[in-house]
């Protein structure tokens, strides 16, 4: 572990994004636009309040998955990764550098969407808005970490984009948003139990309904954070110094 190369990598990724203002603008605005759309689809603050917090976690999860998988795929398929692997660059340092850069972006993305939902769109949160924010950022990080990991199995941008419906949409269908998890049949219930997004959505629902930072929320958060770390470690493991 070398903080200098990790931070240099994070700065490099953010500088690359700075040269691409359209991508940054879309990253920051699209989740908020979708939440606004949802608010007027329901046209009812109470119904919106029931669904919005979960989607505050789901939208950044999807977007970060896409952005992270395409960006790291680009690094893998151009010669820059091969060059970095001949340099004193730790594999985990590279992955953590990406995580810090995208994490910073996720904080901004989720912060804007949460603020707009809470103050303009009438989303009522019984629990702490800060806890909500923490969970949503963790969701975005989870999407990013999974995206980094699965980019190892894609050999083109086309494949990387196809991984979105494959890895993300089943989690969305089974996370309890469309149908309460305890009303699913046992095979689906079991699948839903091993998918990290389910815990994130559980935590978000608990914050909206409950009060304060309960033990159940802490357990959910630990599960999600554990999955983020696991996906990052697996992602670092897929970077190879030597290839055939």
């Amino acid at each position: 572990m070398n903080p200098t190369t990790t931070l240099a990598t994070a700065r490099r990724v953010l500088t690359q994004l700075r040269h691409d203002p359209r991508t940054v603008a879309m990253l920051l605005v699209v989740p908020t636009l979708l939440m606004t759309l949802l608010r007027f689809v329901f046209n009812d603050e109470r119904v919106f309040t029931r669904t919005a917090p979960a989607l505050l976690g789901v939208f950044p999860f999807m977007i970060m998955f896409l952005v992270a998988s395409v960006t790291t795929l680009r690094e893998r398929t151009t010669a820059t990764l091969e060059r970095l692997m001949t340099m004193p660059m730790g594999r985990l340092d590279l992955i953590l550098g990406y995580a810090i850069a995208f994490g910073a972006l996720a904080v901004a993305q989720v912060g804007i969407a949460t603020a707009v939902c809470a103050w303009w769109l009438g989303m009522a949160v019984t629990g702490s808005v800060w806890t909500l924010l923490v969970i949503a950022v963790l969701d975005a990080l989870l999407g990013m970490a999974l995206g980094l990991f699965v980019s190892a199995f894609a050999s083109s941008e086309f494949q990387a984009i196809q991984f979105m419906p494959l890895f993300v949409l089943p989690q969305f269908l089974l996370c309890g948003l469309l149908q309460p998890r305890d009303q699913m049949g046992w095979p689906l219930r079991w699948l839903s139990d091993v998918m990290p997004l389910s815990y994130a959505v559980d935590a978000l629902s608990r914050v909206t309904a409950g009060t304060g930072f309960t033990g159940a929320i802490r357990t959910d958060l630990l599960v999600v954070a554990g999955c983020v770390l696991l996906a990052l470690a697996l992602g670092a493991g897929t970077l190879r110094r030597q290839t055939a």
Binding site: H19, T78, A79, T80, E82, R83, T86, M87, P88, M89
Partner: peptide, 17 residues
């Protein structure tokens, strides 16, 4: 890793920097 400089055939530089 500190002692070798390597330039690949396809330029290994970031196009968006």
């Amino acid at each position: 890793r500190h002692k070798i400089g390597y330039a690949t055939q396809n330029p290994a530089v970031y196009a968006d920097l």
